[in-house]
Computed example of a mutant assay.
Amino acid sequence: MNSPVPVLLAFLALSACQGHTAARPQTSSFLKESIRLLSNLGETTVSCDKMNVTNIFAGEKRDDDMETLCKATAVLQESQSCHGNLEGVYLNLLKLVQRHSVVHQPPCALAAGNTTSLSEFLEDLRRVLQRLVKDWNLK
C-alpha cells in the first residue's frame, strides 16, 4: 500500500514539468491558427475591407510584443462584426495576452491618430504574427 504515494509524487512532478514546456507549443498554435485565419481573410473581399481602423503599426515607437498584441485585440474587437474569422483571431490573441502578460491586459487603450484600412491592418498583423512564430520557435 506504500507504492501509490511514490507513484503519485512522480506523477505530480512530471505533470508540473510538462505544464511548463507545454506553454510554448500552445502559444505557437494560437499564433499559427491566427495566421491561417488572416490568410483566409486576405483571399476574400468583404465590404468593410476599406473601413478605417487605428494603425497600431505606424510611427517610430516600437511596442513590446505583448503590447502590440494587446492593441491588436482592441482593434479586432472593434472590427470583428466585419467578418466572422476576425472573432477567431481576436479570441486567439486575447488568450495569448491574458496568459503571457501581467502588464498588458485587454482591453488596451488605443491612441487616436493614424488610421489605415482594415485590410492593410490585417496584412500587417499577419506579418507580425509570422515574425513572432519564428522568433518564439527559436527561443
Rank of each mutant, 00 (worst) to 15 (best):
E60V: 11
R99A: 12
S15L: 08
K134Y: 15
S39F: 04
I56N: 14
L86C: 07
G88V: 03
L38I: 02
S81I: 11
R99F: 03
A10W: 04
T73A: 01
C82R: 02
N2K: 15
T68P: 07
K139S: 14
L76P: 01
N85T: 08
L9Y: 06
S81V: 10
S47H: 10
L138S: 15
L125Y: 08
G113L: 01
F121V: 04
L41W: 03
E67T: 15
K139T: 12
V5E: 03
G88R: 01
S47P: 10
S39R: 05
R127L: 14
H83W: 05
A58P: 09
L91A: 09
C108D: 02
A111V: 11
P6D: 00
L132R: 01
H20K: 13
V46S: 13
S34K: 02
T54S: 11
S15A: 01
D64I: 13
H20M: 12
F11W: 13
A13H: 09
D124I: 04
K61C: 06
A23F: 01
I56D: 14
A16S: 05
A10K: 07
L86I: 04
E87N: 07
V46A: 11
L110F: 11
V128A: 01
H104L: 00
D49R: 09
L110G: 04
G19Y: 01
D135S: 12
G113F: 08
E60A: 13
T73Q: 05
L12S: 05
H20E: 15
G113Q: 05
S79P: 02
H104W: 13
T27P: 04
I35H: 03
P4I: 02
